[in-house]
């Protein structure tokens, strides 16, 4: 078996998540239960090997909290928009498939951007082009080129937020370079 060895530090987020799920499912966060959970987590991670996720090496908690609040606000607004569209426009609603080229080429950031975009009502990832890291997004109620441009800006803003949270140092400085002039 030719497996790439993963360092414990790289695997730690996964193990911590597995232990948290274990504790939550037993509804018991006593040290004994957590220790047993940690044992099972290591065992599971060894037995069911997954390719390691390449993290950017940094995580900004402050930006993450702001992003979470912003995300929840957007979900609330968009949910009611979709409700309004369903009730008022119904069968006559116009949508579009828009190509959004992303800045980052890291799998983690492309996936995270796609996930966040898909979770906000009104947009759906139809296709991903990994080689050029382009997302093809189906947006509801996109009637003209202006709306399409707005959707593209929104998705790229989401990506910028994610880069600020967990993008690599190079991506972060590229983003700041882009915003300064």
């Amino acid at each position: 078996m030719n497996r790439k060895r993963i360092s414990l530090r790289q695997e730690l987020p996964l193990l911590v998540w597995l232990v948290v799920v274990w504790g939550a499912l037993w509804q018991d966060f006593s040290p004994g239960n957590l220790l047993f959970g940690a044992l099972i987590a290591v065992l599971v991670a060894r037995l069911f090997y997954l390719p390691p996720v390449e993290l950017g090496g940094r995580f900004n908690v402050l930006h993450a909290a702001a992003f979470a609040v912003h995300f929840l606000g957007k979900v609330v607004v968009a949910s009611f928009q979709v409700l309004y569209l369903a009730a008022a426009k119904g069968p006559k609603v116009i949508s579009a498939v828009v190509a959004v080229p992303l800045r980052s080429h890291s799998d983690l950031l492309v996936t995270a951007t796609g996930h966040v975009t898909a979770l906000i009502p009104g947009s759906l990832v139809v296709e991903v082009d990994r080689s050029t890291s382009t997302l093809y997004i189906h947006g509801i109620n996109v009637r003209n080129a202006e709306d399409a441009e707005q959707l593209r800006r929104d998705v790229r803003a989401t990506e910028a937020g994610l880069i600020r949270i967990m993008g690599s140092q190079a991506e972060l400085s590229a983003l700041n370079q882009e915003l300064v002039p």
Partner: peptide, 11 residues
């Protein structure tokens, strides 16, 4: 006819 643009189709 209900799509205003379809940028995936050409690709």
């Amino acid at each position: 006819e209900l799509l205003s643009t379809d940028e995936l189709e050409a690709v």
